[in-house]
Amino acid sequence: MEPRINVQKEGLQAMGALYGMGKYLSKSTLSKSFLELIYFRVSQINGCAFCLDMHSKELREMGETEQRLYLLNAWREAPFYTDRERAAFAYAEALTQITSSLVPDEIYNAAKEQFSDAELIDLTIGIIAINSYNRVNIAFGAAVGTYRIGQYA
């Protein structure tokens, strides 16, 4: 698909706000591979092909297994994810598929058991950021399949 608008060229100043989130998260105590896994899951929910291509390539480069990537959409039934990852997936889904005014207490409390306050803030910012990138790509299109590992590092 040919992009409707080349956001990297035409919207560079506007995209700077999102790039700032990435810069902030690069200093997070949450590992890059952990955040990439969350980005991949949120991109599955949103159906962002560009981000799925991008984050799957980054995750595989970081040593993530094909099995965990293939089954991520069914993480509740698959035994390959840690309790911490499961809490983050549920939290990410609640923030991505907003159905009420607050993240349900059960999901929030499970996340609080796994993450410090600072980590939960960083996780929230990461989820906000990937949802924003997904929506930009879905609105304007992106050259799916062209991403190279480290392209936006």
Rank of each mutant, 00 (worst) to 15 (best):
L35Y: 03
S33I: 15
Q97S: 08
A139D: 00
T124L: 04
Q13R: 09
Y19T: 10
F89D: 07
A88T: 14
G150F: 07
I149D: 02
L30F: 12
I128K: 02
G20M: 15
G150A: 05
F140G: 06
I128P: 04
E66L: 15
Y19L: 04
L35A: 02
D122W: 05
V103I: 10
F140E: 01
L30M: 06
Y91K: 08
R41I: 02
I121F: 09
C48T: 10
L72S: 08
R148F: 07
L25N: 03
Q114W: 10
D83A: 09
L35Q: 12
L12F: 10
S26Q: 12
L25Y: 02
E66N: 12
L30H: 11
T146V: 10
P104R: 01
N131K: 06
N131S: 08
N73V: 12
I5Y: 04
V42W: 08
L59R: 05
D117L: 11
A143T: 13
E93F: 04
Q67S: 14
G22N: 13
Y70S: 11
N109K: 14
S56V: 07
P79F: 03
E85R: 00
N137W: 07
D105G: 00
R84H: 05
R135D: 03
S26H: 13
L37E: 12
I125V: 14
E93W: 01
Y147T: 00
F140A: 03
D105E: 10
E36G: 10
S26E: 11
I130H: 05
S28D: 01
S43Q: 01
V136N: 06
Y39P: 03
F50A: 00
A94F: 01
G16L: 05
L95A: 00
I107V: 15
I121H: 13
G20R: 12
I107T: 07
G126A: 10
G20Y: 00
G11V: 07
Y147D: 06
L37R: 15
D122L: 06
A118I: 15
I121T: 14
R86F: 02
L95F: 14
A143F: 14
S132M: 15
W75H: 05
F34C: 04
Y24Q: 12
T96R: 05
K112W: 02
M62N: 03
E85S: 01
G150P: 09
A118P: 01
I45L: 12
L18T: 13
S116M: 01
E93R: 08
L52K: 02
A153I: 06
F115C: 00
S132L: 05
A78R: 01
R68Y: 01
G63V: 10
A88G: 12
Y133K: 08
K32D: 11
F89K: 00
R84C: 05
V136W: 11
E119H: 00
E10K: 14
K57C: 01
A90W: 06
A78S: 11
R84L: 08
V144D: 03
A142D: 11
S116F: 05
Q8S: 07
G150K: 12
K57G: 08
S28E: 09
L52F: 02
I38G: 04
E61N: 15
N46A: 01
A14L: 15
E77Y: 14
A142T: 05
M21R: 01
S28T: 09
Q151P: 08
M62Y: 04
I127Y: 02
S101F: 04
E36P: 09
W75E: 02
